[in-house]
Design a protein around this nucleic acid. Structure first.
Lengths: 120, 120
DNA sequence: GCACATAGTGTCGAAAAGGATACCGTCATG
DNA sequence: CATGACGGTATCCTTTTCGACACTATGTGC
């Protein structure tokens, strides 16, 4: 129940813009999706790619993405637990959107004071 | 000083996605930009298009957009004040992004329980 | 018996975002 | 004189978001 969706389209035309935004907004969702475009990943694999995201936050974001039908969560009933995350078709359909965001960002977002390519 | 930008690209690859997001995120920014794509608008013209946005919020969002160099604010020193908002080239360059968001949203965001066309 | 890895959950608190409401000065209109 | 349009501010409050930190269960290796 992290956020209320689809119930306050009180913004007049352009709503679907905000609507889309609500799916990919949230501190880490964009990046998580971005990484999942590369393929299925396990929880800790994602985690290692986001060293500054806490476990709790990652869980939250993944849960929201799952609730939104953008990613799928597959649990293997093993004893060191194993959970894989992958994109659903709906999630994959976001690719052009993420790409558009990335394209604009690459051109317009100065990567801060850093070296402008060291986004490790 | 509403938010810190360009100083916490602590997210590893995909940063520019989040970076772009930070520009257009904020409850009403998407819609404001959307309306400004149509052309220059005065403060109250925008306001009338966003009946559920308070004056304070609108001012805030416009200020942030201006600070980000996405819109320009032109003040006419008249006595019933007149202020016009328009897109800068940088702002206009966001058009493909907003379009991508809108395209996906139109296809994937059910406009809630409402009539699905009465987004007035 | 101990630590480690996996994939989480629970609780707490700070900070940011968003919203409600009231107020400002100026001029024109009634 | 009061009201309204214009483009805002100022103040207060609530909600949401984010982050720190500790804790869980189970099985393996030492």
């Amino acid at each position: 129940m992290p956020r209320i969706r689809d119930d306050r389209f009180d913004c007049s035309p352009g709503c679907t813009v905000e609507g889309t935004l609500r799916y990919i907004d949230g501190k880490w969702k964009g990046v998580v999706l971005y990484h999942l475009f590369e393929g299925t990943l396990r929880f800790n694999e994602i985690r290692r790619r986001l060293p500054n995201c806490t476990q709790r936050m990652l869980t939250n974001q993944l849960r929201e993405l799952e609730a939104d039908g953008l990613i799928a969560r597959k649990i293997y009933p093993q004893v060191p637990p194993k959970v894989e995350y992958s994109l659903t078709p709906r999630g994959r359909s976001l690719e052009p959107v993420i790409t558009a965001l990335k394209t604009w960002g690459d051109a317009n977002v100065a990567l801060g004071p850093q070296t402008s390519q060291a986004a490790a």
